[in-house]
Design a binder for these strands. Sequence first.
DNA 1: TCAAAAGTGTTTGGGTTACACCCATGA
DNA 2: TCATGGGTGTAACCCAAACACTTTTGA
Lengths: 249, 249
Amino acid sequence: MNEVSNFFKSAFSIDNVIFGFDEGDLKVLLIKRGTEPYKGLWALPGDLIYPNEGLETAANRVLLELTGLQKVYLEQVHAFGAVDRHPLGRVITIAYFSLVKISDFVVTPSSFAQKAKWHSVAKAQEQTLAFDHNDILDTCFDALKSKVRVRPVGFELLPPKFTLTELQHLYEAILRTPLDKRNFRKKILSMHLLIDLDEMQEGVPHRPAKLYQFDKKRYHKFEAEGFSFELKESKSKDQKRRIEEIIEG
Amino acid sequence: MNEVSNFFKSAFSIDNVIFGFDEGDLKVLLIKRGTEPYKGLWALPGDLIYPNEGLETAANRVLLELTGLQKVYLEQVHAFGAVDRHPLGRVITIAYFSLVKISDFVVTPSSFAQKAKWHSVAKAQEQTLAFDHNDILDTCFDALKSKVRVRPVGFELLPPKFTLTELQHLYEAILRTPLDKRNFRKKILSMHLLIDLDEMQEGVPHRPAKLYQFDKKRYHKFEAEGFSFELKESKSKDQKRRIEEIIEG
DNA sequence: TCAAAAGTGTTTGGGTTACACCCATGA
DNA sequence: TCATGGGTGTAACCCAAACACTTTTGA
């Protein structure tokens, strides 16, 4: 064994922080570990990278195998490589996050039902996860928070038709701050990224809201030009309550 | 050889994009490759990661061995893992950038003088570099550009004493846009991140400028609280000329 | 006295914030 | 008729942008 081959004793993996949005709360998809190490703990979905496989391909594969979803938003965040992060050997992992529409889970793949489960992000952050997955989750959540201020990626998490209030709640869940309803609507509508569908919610026990659709064409123009989403925290007490409920769960 | 060991045929490396600032231009430190592959081409400094070495440790080691510098600004940017990125095998590399003060290079280490050289970033981006180092350089330059809008890391690139004009030229070189002199000064001074040294430039063939020092204490407060640097491009023609000179070199 | 860069204030406009009440629906 | 969330406008404020001339030094 020559000297260089000493460097070929390590493995790469990817871990994928899969975010979803449901019931007004930001969720992350976790898997219960059935084997050692960390048997019984929740972990991020991930896998070793095949020798002939690109990084993003591996991240998409993990997502596809677990959820059956393809072509979803995927972004590399950070590599984690502490020497002792994996008890069985040196494994450097590259963390990605994905944004999926929980509404797309019409059929639950069998591989999924067995051990994967959506968790509230806030609650997951408070539990002990396997490996260094708490670090990874925190880093990816922060990356999502930063991203959402700069690109309107939030739409990736919503069903095709949604109300402005749902959109606002999504932003509040990601930014973890209450937003002023009127200012939020003004700002969002002024971007002309939404198509008014001239449809209404049905069967809700209150005044039904208008439904909107995301305008992908305009979005791609924004992507090229740049974009800024900045709304400061609203100071009214009523609006803060929602957020505390979400965060403190 | 069992199945899992197939995954242990790859290697990790780090590459470090070392930025400096000199003569009003942003520079990057490149190494001329003396061996195949890509013999004779310029490349980013990098190395394989030792089995018992953390990622950041490896990046710092490369920096130390090359420049003799320690404790400089270092930030992980992105992992590059295209299957064919290295002709001799599967090597996934993790890219970092560092910010160094060229003024600290009082003694040039012997390892340095042999083959390392500062290049204008703009010119380096136009050349063909070894491996996928053009991608890596572009990505790291963009990361620096984004960072500088959010954190005042520019100071890491300047000597301990500097003038406001030098600082402005640094920002212009990184952002690749001309800035309005009066607005720039107002903005920077309003942050109270500079200590007025009550000293002047000497021996310059024009009115000497005041020298300032960076206020590290206040900076660390900003780091905790958050920070925003946003100045739009100035539209005056005089100020644009500088930038075109820099970019077109 | 000339060249070269330093230094300095004010006005204007656009965008963000704060804020409260009426409306439509189902139960 | 009540509870629940949907939906709307305006005034005050702040910050960013635009902009031109005087000053100081060395050559």
